[in-house]
Amino acid sequence: MSELDLRTAAASAAPVRRARPSVSEIFAMAFVLFLAVATVVPGLLSSIDPNAIAARDAFQGPSPEHWFGTDESGRDVYSRVIAGTSTSLLIGVSATVIGVTLGLILGVIAGFGGRILDFSVNRTIEVLFAFPGLLLALLVIVIAGPGPVTATIAVGLSTAPGYARIIRGQLAGIRSSGYVESARVLGHGPRRILTRHILPNALAPLMVLATLGIGQAVVWASALSYLGLGAQPPSAEWGAMLSAGRTYIGTAWWLTVFPGLMIVLTTIATTILGRSLTRRTAGRR
């Protein structure tokens, strides 16, 4: 048995392998950190009031003084982009939270509620899936009226069916898994099996998906603002800034390029992080 013990010791002594983060992951983490700072203490990144109007400074290109130039009212685009971070991210993150929560409720009802509930939730999800997500969001806004809060709810609602379907699948798979069965054979009760085995295993991949979803929610929220249905001007929000800058796109490119760049980078960063989380948790089976 000595050989066995040796092997055992080797197996447990080996450190848990953690791949070194790649360049893109480092970039993504740095950018997310930047976004976090911009959200919590925007003053640290820009000292100019994002809403200070200076008519004679209007339409200045990027310069050492105004890094991202100025807009039609002479407001500093850089500080507006920074100020807009909190709004855009707040909408994106809250929308994802709403989507995941709703998805969780629907998914759990479908996964545990018996055949009739499963059937009805499933058909509802399928009907919702038939609409393009953004169209669904527009429908909600038509009913509830435009504004940042309704935009958040709208985006959250339109992402919920996707999460619900994934959770339902996870639950179904885990419920018939070998480890749930062996917990039953041992004599554990249903509540304990649910809280100790099923939910933790179903939720872990969901957190990864939610990270991936934040980027998409930011894009959708910006799209709604761009259409004038989300955050309203003059409030600094990336989508709203894009919309306002659209008129001058031929003469003042910086009005649209910089907010657009922020949306693109945010999406890319959250996607990279989401994917690397997927990879890292996949190793745990």
Binding site: G178, Y179, S182, A183, G189, P200, N201, R284
Partner: peptide, 22 residues
Amino acid sequence: RRPLRRKVGAIYQDSLSSFDPR
């Protein structure tokens, strides 16, 4: 039956899938 279940144990061929991966 649940209180009696512990008296009848089981060992499976694919033991890995009978363990919670977490």
